[in-house]
Amino acid sequence: MSGHDHGDDGVSRRKVLECMTWAGTGVLWTITGGVPRSLGIIDSAEAATAAAPGMTFLQISDSHVGFDKPANPNALGTLEEAVNKINAMPTKPSFMIHTGDITHLSKASEFDNADRIISQSKLDVHYVPGEHDFLDEEVKFYRDRYGRGTKGAGWYSFDAGGVHFVGLVNVVDLKAGGLGNLGTEQLAWLEDDLRGKSKSTPIVLFAHIPLWTVYPEWGWGTEDGGRALEYVKGFGSVTVLNGHIHQVMQKVEGNVTFHTARSTAFPQPAPGAAPSPGPMKVEDAKLRSMLGVASINFKQNEQRLAIIDTPLQG
């Protein structure tokens, strides 16, 4: 965890950062928890709060519309709060990505409700599916709504503001005992998609399940994620954005920044901190500090994208 101090911000950051580390597969991960304004990539994070030049886009994740269990009886309500938060941001983002688990049970009504609320942001939204979005009998509701113009189970790429974005699907054809899965067809497409791109093009990969191994005991990782990362190795700036684990987690490895966003629906425990990764019931007063969205700013000539996680409250 390194970065420059920026006056007052540096002090408060040190005060609020509650770093918990544990050894995964020989790497030290860092989690930030209980952070009123959790800082993502610190180098220029505060730059994005003001009217930042460059391009800003938003990430929302794991809205689980339809979820009504004790951890949050009104997931649709907190999604709406997140959208209100987005609408109140001083800089209007260029667009939004949603990193999956739009719905809880893939019901048509859940997709409709999600769309009704998310569309209030009046932003273009680029979706990738989570495992909760493919639960309908015919597995067609997600594809009918968001699959147009995509390949395979829903992967695609696009360019915006000089950045190349790739949306990947790692929630289908999962193998017993395994983790998330991209599969050979998608990997071959990715390799081809990146071929010929200038190595100075900033790359953003986004997918539901973390592409890096966060905690295999809970399935938090992608079996063949390493192969996708091989393909982006030569690029100067790579940002990997995921959801699924309902908490902010980040890691920087060389030119690659890994970041997971909060859910707008319910928090999940830190790896290994509970008997299972299921929805975590916290005090009502604390819930909104553990839900939120992420905003990502890209400035030309800066290697790293600045990521700011904003909770719904606190």
Binding site: E131, H132, L135, L174, K175, A176, G177, G178, L179, P216, E217, W218, G219
Partner: peptide, 12 residues
């Protein structure tokens, strides 16, 4: 009969 949860494949 080996079985698993196709959503959370670590469950077998």
């Amino acid at each position: 009969y080996k079985y698993f949860c196709s959503l959370h494949p670590h469950m077998t």
